[in-house]
Amino acid sequence: MSSTEQGTSSAAPAEPTTAPESAAAPEVPESFYYVHGKDKVVHKVSAGALQHSALIHGMISNLGYTEEQAKANPFPFENIDGDILQMVVDWCNQHKGKPTPPEDTNLPKQKEKLFDLVLAVNYLEIKELLTYCCKQVAMMVKGKSPEEIREIWMIPTDAEDEAAEKEAKKRAGKEAAGETAAAAGDAK
């Protein structure tokens, strides 16, 4: 994964994304990269599709993998569930080299998946998809009352917030006391 052999793939990503079907342009072989999530299932993604992700694009630019190296060392995203990563990959492939539409109807409707998707997309730095996801999250509470919103988004009440704050303060105080005690013990 951490191998950093210098290859020739630095110029490869941009070309196939713009005009893959154009017959006039000279055929440039599209390079592919591999990613896997928490479930270790490897997904093959074209460099053009991965351009949506600022994080992966930066990694590709910096690492300069050859195709063989990329196949041998898929990018690991251990904090992203396999199905969420699959969604992200699908979205990137769908919107490869296309202008992003104002609305995207292919986003998941399930709330928990949407939330995980927001976190994953935020991590992968896919701006357009993040915009869609945030709008989708906002749509979850459309026309809902405050009580319903509180339930859907798990918003703690003021009392719960205060209790949590108190607890956090207490914990911080205890930790500080423990640290000072340990420091005193070391000094002795």
């Binding site: 709330k111 928990e112 949407l114 939330f115 927001v118 976190l119 935020n122 993040l130 996801c133 945030c134 999250v137 339930e151 859907i152 988004w153 798990m154 918003i155 703690p156």
Partner: peptide
Amino acid sequence: MPISLLSLPAAD
């Protein structure tokens, strides 16, 4: 299952 909106990153 509900989601915790307030645990989202600040920008999101």
